[in-house]
């Protein structure tokens, strides 16, 4: 059999990057499914793409800016009302392990 386009190890890594947890069963299923999509994506290899400029935006706009003027801000109580947990006017989160990159 040909090598799989993506391994379980890679899916585990990707799930970690995306802050998702997979059960063993899910790992197998997702690996197969992602593999199928990536396999399909390989048909692009038939195309001659050297020198083709990548296209990130559908519409070629440039220099869209706004003036440095103060706009509407939100009421703190309303914002914190929607928060899962808050304290002292701030959003509360559990203990952080690890520094900011």
């Amino acid at each position: 059999m040909m090598t799989e386009p993506i391994s379980e190890k890679e899916v585990t890594h990707v799930a970690h990057l995306a802050r998702l947890r997979l059960s063993d069963d899910e790992l197998g299923i997702f690996t197969r499914q992602l593999g199928a999509v990536l396999e399909h994506a390989k048909d692009v290899e038939a195309l001659q793409l050297d020198g083709v400029e990548p296209m990130s935006h559908p519409f070629p706009l440039e220099n869209v800016t706004r003036e440095d003027e103060v706009g509407e801000m939100l009421d703190r109580d309303k914002v914190l009302d929607q928060a899962p947990a808050a304290e002292d006017g701030r959003f509360q989160v559990p203990q952080i392990l690890g520094d900011q990159p």
Binding site: V14, A18, F30, P94, Q95
Partner: peptide, 30 residues
Amino acid sequence: QGETLAEMNINTRTNGFGNEVKRRIMLGTY
């Protein structure tokens, strides 16, 4: 909830998203 921030993030996203969303997030991350 989770003991640590990262655990909380993971528990929330794992429980909060359905399979198709997870599939596409992982595909895109990859």
